[in-house]
Design a protein around this nucleic acid. Structure first.
Lengths: 156, 156
DNA sequence: ACGAAATCCAAGTAAAATGCTAGGAAATGA
DNA sequence: TCATTTCCTAGCATTTTACTTGGATTTCGT
């Protein structure tokens, strides 16, 4: 019941892109540096975002990635689904159509549906633009106070 | 981001107990039979429920398990947490207290909190008694119609 | 035209988690 | 006493995770 690093790193990468790719393409290496994620691994994550149509790429020198849509039109749900696949905590066979014809008798199905719905609703409501905004605020606030050199990078 | 069989089987076992353990102790083997789960594995799951104080046991012949509280006072969240541990999809190091002092700068934390809250709220609202009730209704309805011999057991 | 900077692509791999199985000790009711 | 049951621990095969490695290809700048 845990979100893997795919989802966690990938969302950070997406937010990073939302923040820095408006003017120019952003390279994997620069994201990796800022976010403190292995380049090779990050490459695979961003590839998933591209495959899902959330980012576009330019090859060659000075190339890199940019969001394919405005950050206000990409939800956290879009990103997490691109990275982790279906977000449903339980995929009941009744939902896939095959088997489980005693679906009427299956009580837990009700529970899984509720859980799935609540997760979906939550992640689809939060847009990347909101998170960028939050991040800007936080950075400003942090800069106003004295800098804390010992601060550890957050891997959330 | 998937619930493991621990949670899925375990919840079915808990519902089974809620349904059948009111009058007498219910053995692992009878639950396993009804729910079509391996006995050995189920034993470990029910042990977790016991450790969490949700069920009580009687050893020896004619022994077995019973719910430790009325089904109306045990939530799906209680059961799933007993089985899967913390249900939080992401445990941010900021929440554990150690490291991550740049928590203000950590935007994703906001997202994980929202997700965790929505899951928690959902599972804590559903009580075992509700599910037993649903199950009774469904069984009655199913019995009224013609029986479908080919029906597969639902593993949800 | 060359070379550095990039994306793109496919495999391999160590470590951890999952989903069990196996075997037996201890308790208890008939 | 003996069948039935919980209790406890260890092992183990498979799958998933979280990377790493090595290269091919594209493109910009000089």
């Amino acid at each position: 019941m845990k979100l893997s690093t795919k989802g966690r790193y990938g969302l950070r990468a997406a937010i990073d892109l939302a923040q820095y790719s408006e003017r120019e393409a952003v390279s994997i290496s620069s994201i990796a540096l800022r976010q403190n994620i292995s380049e090779g691994y990050l490459e695979q994550l961003v590839a998933k975002l591209k495959k899902a149509g959330l980012v576009m790429s330019t090859r060659g020198a000075q190339g890199g990635y940019r969001l394919a849509r405005p950050a206000a039109e990409i939800s956290v749900g879009d990103v997490l689904r691109a990275l982790e696949g279906n977000l449903d905590a339980v995929v009941c066979s009744a939902q896939t159509g095959e088997g489980c014809q005693g679906a009427d008798l299956c009580v837990t199905k009700y529970v899984w549906q509720k859980i799935n719905e609540s997760i979906t609703k939550t992640v689809d409501e939060i847009m990347l633009s909101q998170l960028v905004e939050e991040s800007r605020k936080a950075q400003k606030k942090s800069a106003d106070q004295q800098p804390d050199y010992g601060a550890q990078k957050c891997l959330g």
